[in-house]
Amino acid sequence: MSARVLIGDLGGTNLRLALTDGDGLRSECVFKTAELAGLEAALEAFLEPIPAPERPKSAIVAVAGPVSGDRIRLTNCPWQFSRDAVRERFGWARFGLMNDFAAVAAALPHFADDHLDAVQTGIEVARRPKLVLGPGTGLGVGVAVPSGEDWHVLDGEGGHATLAASNGEEAELIALLRRRLGHVSAEDVLSGPGLVNIFAAIAERDGLDLDPATGEEVVERLDKEGCPAAQEALDRFACFLGTVAGNAALTAGARGGVYLAGGVLQNLGARFRADLFRAAFNAKGRMSAYLETVPVYRITHPEPGLFGLQALARG
C-alpha cells in the first residue's frame, strides 16, 4: 500500500483502527476502551508490530463526542487526550479529528445496495442531503450534503436534543424518566442504556420489581420469558426512533435518504419493529406525505465508520 493513513473509529465501547491508502484496509484491529488507559496506549499497541518505515505519516480519527479545540473528551467513555500531544508523539504531519457519526455520514454516498436493507421504500432525490442516526452506546447523528461534485459532512450532537412525546403514553414515560434523569434527551432512550431506561420507566409505571442492567438483558427477558414489559420497551424504542428520525429528516431536508446504524439495531435484528418505526417516522401531520417519499435504510456494512474514513482518506 502507498500513502498509508491510519484511520480510527473511537466509540464509547470499542476503538477500531486500520491502515488505508483509500482503496482498502490493512492491519484492522478492535480494542475495548474499558481494557486500555486511553487512545495513546491503544495506538502504541496497534503500531508496535508495524516496521518503522511502514508506519503512517498521518491519521484521521472519529470520536464519539464533540470535536473542538485541543483537548478531546468522549461523551460515554472516560478517555480524553490532547490532539497536539498525540500528533507530536507519533510524528504525524496531519492528525484529523471528527465526530464519529460525521465519519459514518461520509460513507453514505458510497454504500452499495448490498450494504443496505430497506425499512421504507421511497424515492431517493439525487444530490440532496443524506441523514444517519445510530443508537449504540449513545445516539450518533450525522448529515452528508452535496458540495459541487463532492459531499460535505456535518457533525453535531443531535442525540442530546430534548426528547418529544407523540402521545399521552409516551408523555407518561418521559415524565417518569425526567424524575430520575432531569433532562431527557433522545439518547436517553435511543441507546443501549436508553433501552434499559425505557424498561425501567415501564416497570415503575406498572409497579413491577424488574431491574435489568443492560439492553442485552432486556432482550433476553423477551426471548427467554416472553416478558410483556420487555416487548413494550422494544416497541417504544422503535416508536421513539421513528419520531426522532422523522424530526431530523424534516430539519435536514433529507430527501436523499435516512440511514439507521448502531450496535443496538444490530443486536435487535429482526426484533426491531420496522412497522412501528415507519408509523412514527411519517406521523408529521401536513408533512406526512413528504416523509412517506423519503427512503429509509438499515446499514448492514460491518464497519460503516471505517468505510467513511476510508473514503475521506481517498479524497
Rank of each mutant, 00 (worst) to 15 (best):
E204T: 04
R221H: 13
P193Y: 12
N197A: 10
N197H: 07
L210A: 14
A201E: 02
E217F: 15
P193L: 06
E216D: 06
V189N: 07
D209Q: 13
A200E: 00
R221I: 09
I198C: 07
E217M: 13
N197F: 04
A186R: 11
G192A: 05
A213P: 07
A201C: 10
E216L: 14
H183T: 08
G192M: 13
P212F: 04
S191E: 09
L208Q: 10
I202G: 14
D188W: 00
H183M: 12
P193K: 02
V218Y: 15
G194K: 00
R205W: 01
L190H: 07
L208M: 08
G215Y: 02
E204W: 01
E216A: 11
V189R: 12
V196T: 09
A200T: 05
A213C: 02
N197I: 06
E217N: 09
S185T: 11
G194T: 09
A213L: 08
F199L: 06
A200C: 03
L222G: 10
L190M: 10
A213W: 00
A203Y: 04
T214W: 12
V218D: 06
P212M: 00
D209T: 01
G192L: 03
A186N: 11
V196Q: 04
P193M: 03
A213R: 02
E220A: 13
G207L: 09
A203M: 08
P212I: 02
A186S: 12
S185A: 15
L195P: 00
E187S: 00
S185V: 05
A201Y: 08
D188G: 11
E187P: 06
I202Q: 10
S191R: 01
E220Q: 14
L210W: 05
A200Q: 05
L210R: 13
E216R: 15
L195G: 03
L195V: 01
L208H: 08
A213F: 07
E217H: 11
V189W: 00
L208Y: 06
I198V: 10
G215H: 09
E220T: 14
G215M: 01
L210V: 02
A186H: 06
P212L: 01
N197W: 05
S191N: 04
H183E: 14
I202T: 03
L210S: 13
G215F: 07
D188C: 08
S185E: 15
V219Q: 15
E187L: 07
S191H: 01
D209G: 08
A200D: 03
F199K: 03
A213V: 01
I198G: 11
G207P: 05
L210Y: 05
P212G: 04
R205T: 10
G215K: 07
V184E: 13
R205S: 05
D209V: 00
A201Q: 11
V189I: 12
R221Y: 15
R205Y: 03
V218P: 15
E204I: 01
D188V: 01
A213H: 03
A201G: 06
I198P: 06
A201V: 07
E216G: 14
G192Y: 05
A203T: 09
I198T: 04
L210G: 02
I198N: 05
A200R: 12
R221S: 15
A203N: 13
D211A: 11
G207K: 06
E204N: 04
L208I: 11
G207C: 05
E220R: 08
A203K: 00
L222P: 13
L190Y: 04
E216K: 15
E217A: 14
D211F: 12
